[in-house]
Design a protein around this nucleic acid. Structure first.
Length: 274
DNA sequence: CCGACAACCTGTGAGC
DNA sequence: TGCTCACAGGTTGTCG
């Protein structure tokens, strides 16, 4: 279930076990992900040192120190997870990639739907074609009400779909778009350009608060990140509207409505969201 | 430039 | 119990 909070939670969970470690072995069981795992990746990574893990949107960026340094770019797609397991833990049928570290632990990628990606980039990852056109980070200071207002004046599409446009702002997937719009009291169908300054500010604050709350909740489960059968460090949360069609709104008690926008499920309270 | 939509792939749960 | 169908957290690429 990787949206920004899950990716960030994964990053924080991996950091203490991964940063500074040397990769002793690489196992690639499935080459066919969203794009093929680059041939020669295993050879390139073997013996290299993982110097840092950064995040851009929903991409995890592993800085690799080796004779030819570069960045290992990982995207978890719809169903991907990264977790730490002990060396020797048998791989399941959707465990596509292992990085065996010099501390007896293994970074294991599982991705049943294989919408995820594992890529290599020799230079500045911000210049990678997949990352070059990404929008603003929602937890950064540049994401403000004034900024959102300015960048939505020519957008006639529904605010929910605009909010999920990674070229504008990254990391806000279907769940948190639904949740943030509820907390901001905004109808997800409203054309983006019809939002005034004040509502843009409310929405920006709701997005930030929703994401930060989810990260904090995930962070509390990070202690058990290294476990043979451990969960990847995040868990089902308590949603205000997502997945609650027909159930009572937690604020007004009215029924939560379900509809489809751009082939994605939208949940909202018609009474609280205008 | 903007927006709508199909495509990628597998698992799961509802309904019959 | 077993089958079929709709749908699921994301993103790219194509077309109008």
């Amino acid at each position: 279930m990787p949206e920004l909070p899950e990716v960030e939670t994964t990053r924080r969970g991996l950091m203490p076990h991964v940063v500074g470690r040397v990769i002793e072995g690489v196992t690639v069981r499935a080459v066919r992900l969203r794009w093929p795992v680059p041939p020669g990746l295993a050879r390139r990574l073997a013996g290299a040192r993982l110097a840092d893990i950064e995040r851009r949107g929903k991409y995890l960026l592993f800085r690799v120190e080796a004779s030819t340094p570069g960045w290992l770019i990982v995207h978890l797609g719809m169903s991907g997870s990264l977790r730490m397991v002990a060396a020797g833990t048998p791989a399941g049928c959707h465990d596509h990639l292992d990085l065996s570290l010099d501390n007896g632990h293994v970074v294991r990628l599982r991705d049943p739907r294989r919408f995820g990606a594992v890529l290599w980039h020799p230079g500045d990852p911000a210049r990678h074609p997949l990352l070059a056109h990404l929008g603003v980070e929602p937890l950064s200071e540049s994401f403000t009400g004034a900024w959102l207002y300015r960048h939505t004046r020519n957008r006639s599409a529904a605010i929910k779909q605009v909010l999920m446009d990674a070229g504008l702002v990254v990391g806000v997937g279907n769940i948190y778009a639904n949740e943030a719009l509820f907390h901001a009291g905004i109808d997800p169908r409203r054309p983006a350009r019809r939002l005034g300054q004040a509502r843009c500010t409310r929405l920006v604050e709701a997005v930030r608060a929703t994401l930060e709350r989810a990260i904090a909740a995930g962070g509390s489960s990070l202690r058990d990140f290294v476990h043979a059968d451990g969960q990847p460090g995040y868990f089902q949360q308590h949603y205000a509207v997502y997945g609650r069609a027909g159930e009572p709104c937690r604020r007004c008690g009215g029924p939560i409505r379900h509809l489809r926008q751009g082939n994605r499920s939208t949940f909202f309270c018609p009474r609280c969201q205008r």
